[in-house]
Design a binder for these strands. Structure first.
Lengths: 347, 347
DNA sequence: TGCACTATTGCAATCGATTGCAATATCACC
DNA sequence: GGTGATATTGCAATCGATTGCAATAGTGCA
């Protein structure tokens, strides 16, 4: 029953078959009400019969709109690793769905591409109508430049307050504060922080960590604040390190991501340190695996669904000439086993 | 020092500024050797000064090539979940990098989009020059149809042998065989299989599982073969199930993915079953987290790097008029703690 | 019957770059 | 000086769809 793999049809073919002009055919296909209902139906029928699809390229050229959004994933300049954190995948999926729902295509740019000048490559060349920039990027001057160039874009991350572009992101500071306050409430007094504060988001989590300590009257110890990359491996190695130095008294760890937390947990367990009895552990992100490691990981859940939708909504609003505004999304502490202990227990 | 956000320049602007015709300008920018070296340099200089970027849309229209590849991620029709398996992200990253390297853009399609007719949407409309289809898809008649429609595309998955399109994928059968033979060599006799064999790839792993059992003279027990979705949760629930029924004697589990394996591990540990002493466990994929769970997970590593490169290479070859051929990639068993026991130990 | 007005449809320009072919300039060599 | 070959450059068509404006047909009303 399959219709022949029809040689590519153009609008002019359809017009000819329908016995109308190209303009009428074009209008009919776009449901322009000025076209007579019968004519419209006839044209649409013929187009459907021949599996005609508007040539997106020609349309884009004429309308000056690509109906495509470029999603750019920033990488750690140092590790240069490819998309790897499960959290990214999460939000990427939401964005993809939402863009599709809005009739936009999604151009995805990965590590190497970001060497290019995004503005030139995606925007000036008309490949995309706007940009969504994601990732635990460090301060990147390229982003600031974009905002001076009239390119519609939004960023997933943490607002520093000084930037001139819309940033959507979780309330990292509050999330961290919740997490660390939770550890404190479980009796932790010497709590390590694992994360790379050169990333704005992590910097915010670090501030939240300090907020909570201060609120509890605990003095922050620099030796417990470890610069840690975004990988389980980094979490593992840094935890070994801190254990080596602080073994006797460390009783809590706040990791800036679940991946880091899992690495940390591995190191703890290898040293026969009981989690959470001796050291309680909290992560950040609530990736799928967090519920299934042992002990399961207490963590801060980001609302990726709302985040993705908001990113898209704000960007499209910006593209349509309105303003896009920064927004902070609430987060939620998910308590699991890695911090499940009475606060009266001590080592 | 920033150059003004220059109003979009067109080729004709550049030509005028350089005092040459559009055709000369175009040729100069494309390094056409027929153009005088001085002219060429002058044009290129002017273009660079004004941050001129060729309008990709216009070029595509004229050349009839989009230089874009659509990557489509198939979903489980039942669970309808978004991209979630870390493994997908892995191979997606490789493909993205490789496409970029080859000068192609990547259009990513997620769940909802796949409701559409890919051929029409991506190919007929000239949005993409070719398709890469990824994911643990079940048999999907849409894919077969594509091959009759003259659309260049390649599939990541498992070749059934009867399909008429190029399939790149791991040697799932051998991988599973290695994994299960490994369990057998560790003394396992009653080995469960967790996976959804309606997915061709998983079906292959199931066959490998049977191969290994047969080679070891072990009779396969239907009660130990559990249909399991691609999630840690499914692995967890199914394992609870099998434990409930088979507690006394189950001594090994082969999970069709690492996510499933982690769910299984959780269930085992919750029942105070020692891994690997009482039940040894092997997964598939070698996702990043596998090395960092406790006990770390023995698994079968797929060569995503080679796979991604091959997918791209074969597709581009096909686009350039050559044939694309199916290929099976070798896999490797990664031994970690979840199966680390002497084969003489028994419960 | 005549005129204004509305409903439809078509003409032709346009989006921006690429390219086959023709045109011109330059040069070597007899 | 003449002739053919070679190096450069430009003209104009083309890719396929969209859209402002003009043209035509049809309708209602005086």
């Amino acid at each position: 029953m399959a219709i022949k793999p029809a040689k590519t049809m153009t609008l002019s073919d359809i017009a000819r078959l329908a016995g109308v002009s190209e303009s009428t055919a074009s209008r009919a296909l776009r449901d322009n009400p000025v076209i007579n209902a019968q004519t419209r139906q006839k044209v649409q029928q013929i187009a459907a019969d021949h599996q005609f699809k508007v040539n997106a390229t020609a349309r884009s050229l004429r309308t000056q709109k690509s109906h495509t959004i470029a999603v750019i994933i920033l990488f750690d300049a140092k590790t240069q690793q490819a998309i790897t954190d499960p959290f990214l995948l999460d939000i990427l999926g939401v964005i993809a769905d939402e863009l599709t729902r809005q009739g936009y295509d999604m151009l995805l740019s990965s590590s190497k591409t970001t060497d290019k000048d995004w503005r030139s490559y995606y925007f000036d060349s008309k490949r995309a109508d706007g940009l969504i920039i994601i990732g635990q990027g460090e301060h990147d001057e390229r982003v600031e430049q974009l905002s001076n160039a009239g390119v519609p874009f939004v960023v997933w991350g943490a607002a520093s307050g000084t930037e001139h572009f819309p940033v959507i992101g979780s309330d990292n500071r509050q999330g961290a504060q919740l997490a660390v306050a939770h550890l404190v409430s479980r009796g932790c007094k010497r709590i390590a922080f694992l994360g790379d504060i050169r990333h704005t988001e992590i910097e915010m989590r670090y501030l939240g960590y300090q907020d909570a300590l201060q609120a509890a009257g605990i003095k922050a110890e620099p030796a417990l604040q470890l610069n840690t990359d975004f990988t389980a491996q980094a979490g593992y190695l840094q935890t070994q390190q801190v254990l080596f130095n602080q073994l006797a008294t460390l009783d809590g760890i706040f990791a800036a991501s679940d991946a880091i937390a899992m690495g940390a947990m591995k190191a703890l367990l290898e040293h026969n340190i009981k989690v959470p009895q001796q050291v309680a552990l909290v992560g950040f992100d609530d990736i799928a695996m967090s519920a299934y490691c042992t002990p399961s990981l207490t963590t801060v859940k980001q609302d990726t669904h709302a985040g993705g939708k908001l990113l898209v909504a704000q960007l499209l609003s910006r593209i349509n000439g309105n303003k896009a505004t920064s927004q902070l999304l609430p987060v939620k502490l998910i308590e699991r086993q890695s911090s499940l202990r009475s606060h009266t227990i001590a080592t």
